[in-house]
Design a protein around this nucleic acid. Structure first.
Length: 404
RNA sequence: GGGGAGAUGGCAGAGUGGUCUAAUGCACCAGACUGUAAAUCUGGCGGCGAAAGCCUUCGGUGGUUCAAAUCCAUCUCUCCCCA
């Protein structure tokens, strides 16, 4: 009597929403061994706590880690507290800033708090790679470094690009893949997960494990989800992300702003809907009879439900409709009291922090983007009477209830 | 150790003494339109000011000049070639 589901079911489950499995045969063998011995597989995911704001792009791989938990395997989250001090160069065209130990501690905590929205903390094992990497001495490091060559390091796409484009690569960045590989050796990992940009690092893990007489880990990569702009990968620095801790209205709205041709990818990688739903969406997208907007609404509800609840998803939708379709004002909005019955429009906008400068406020008024209780403000010197509260609207989505 | 090139607005990237708040593209903001915060089109995109106008910005510092992103010195950082 096995504690795991049938192997073909496990494989189907794991295959959904991943980019590549190296290799499927090895994974099947691992599952078979687990079946025989009853020992769960060790599934490793390393995380870099340098930027702890998790978005639904990070969630792709985190959910995969969760999937392994769901079928009874041992998921391990490796907090890269030590490697964060190095700065992972993956997918970057410049050196990452190195963090202080205090920052790393703080960020790690935030990371786990946020990951809790996706992972099952009851069975999750959390370790810090500083525990073993921090114990290595210089001799150990040199020995580790001798396992790899410069030429092989330069094979890595981003190193090669940076080298060719004459952007700096620091020596310490070469140590990153090796450090990460050490984690796999330390944990004797059966599987390591990562984004496609991590592929090189993950493969180094296999090599190093073999050098240490371990069976090489299976490498599973997940796609890097495009951001809401549809062009660049989702990232906080491009401001094209949907944060997993964002409020429902924000998640809903940002989802509605993605380009149409991203709808199917988001369904596949940002939700857990099953393959029949996926097929249905695919059909509707191409049949020309369905308004893509309606599919996007469905998608937005799915994603809000995932991180909040079905109920809040419906609320978010209702509010979205009210603001953008009916051009009405939202239920809840920020409030601001002026301290006087009559104030200039410029000072309200600036003092409340709704706009960053008077210059900016002036521009917006000139462009006809500012209304008070639905009345367009035409003159930048206008005084507003707020003895009874008014609703200030700037652009399409900035609202403020202003009172004296 | 020797030689050469470079650092410009959120990013990329022009500009080599005044016409430079600094071309252009991307990003961003707004308006129109719409099926949405999509697409497309139009406008905007340092600060203060009602306006006139004033102030601040081109790696840091100091200098030359009536005038510097542009010239000189120096510092910091980066890249390339040779050894």
């Amino acid at each position: 009597m096995s504690i795991f589901p049938p192997i073909n079911e496990q494989m189907d489950f794991i295959r959904r929403g991943v980019e590549e499995i190296i290799s499927e045969d090895e994974l099947v063998k691992k599952f078979e061994t687990a079946e025989k011995t009853g020992d769960p597989l060790v599934i490793k995911l390393g995380c870099d706590p340098s930027r702890p704001d998790l978005h639904i792009g990070h969630a792709v791989v985190l959910r995969k880690l969760r999937h392994f938990q769901d079928i009874g395997h041992q998921s391990v989250l490796v907090i890269g507290d030590f490697t964060a001090l190095i700065g992972d160069p993956s997918g970057r065209n410049k050196t990452r800033p190195q963090l202080t130990p205090e920052q790393v501690d703080e960020f790690s905590e935030t990371y786990v708090q946020q990951a809790e929205h996706i992972l099952d903390l009851k069975t999750l094992k959390i370790v810090r790679n500083g525990d073993w990497l921090g114990a290595m001495n210089f001799h150990d490091v040199i020995k580790l470094a001798s396992h790899y060559t410069v030429a092989r390091m330069l094979e890595r796409d981003d190193f090669e690009k940076r080298y060719k484009s004459e952007t700096p690569i620091s020596i310490h960045e070469f140590l990153y893949p090796l450090a990460q590989a050490m984690d796999s050796v330390e944990l004797n990992a059966d599987v390591e997960l990562g984004g496609t940009d991590q592929k090189f690092n993950l493969l180094v893990g296999r090599d190093l494990q073999k050098d240490h007489g371990q069976g090489p880990q299976v490498v599973i990569t997940t796609p890097l989800l495009e951001g809401t702009d549809g062009i660049q990968k989702m990232s906080k620095s491009y401001d094209n992300y949907i944060g997993i801790t964002d409020p429902p209205s924000e998640i809903y709205g940002r989802t509605m702003s993605i380009p149409d041709d991203l709808i199917i990818r988001y369904f596949e990688f940002a939700t857990d809907v099953d393959s029949t739903v996926l097929k249905d969406v695919q059909t509707k997208l191409s049949d020309g009879k369905t308004n893509p907007r309606d599919l996007k609404r469905q998608l937005a509800r799915e994603i809000v439900s995932l991180y909040h609840s079905d109920e809040l998803a419906l609320e978010a939708e209702a509010e979205f409709d009210r603001i953008f379709i009916e051009s009405d004002v939202p239920d809840k909005m920020e409030e601001w009291s002026t301290g006087a019955a009559e104030v200039t429009i410029l000072s309200i906008m600036c003092d409340s922090g709704l706009v960053p400068s008077k210059r900016e406020a002036r521009r917006l008024i000139d462009q006809g983007a500012v209304t008070v209780d639905g009345e367009k403000v035409l003159d930048i010197t206008e005084n507003i009477n707020v003895s009874s509260p008014v609703v200030l609207k700037v652009g399409k989505r900035r609202f403020l209830r202003v009172s004296a």
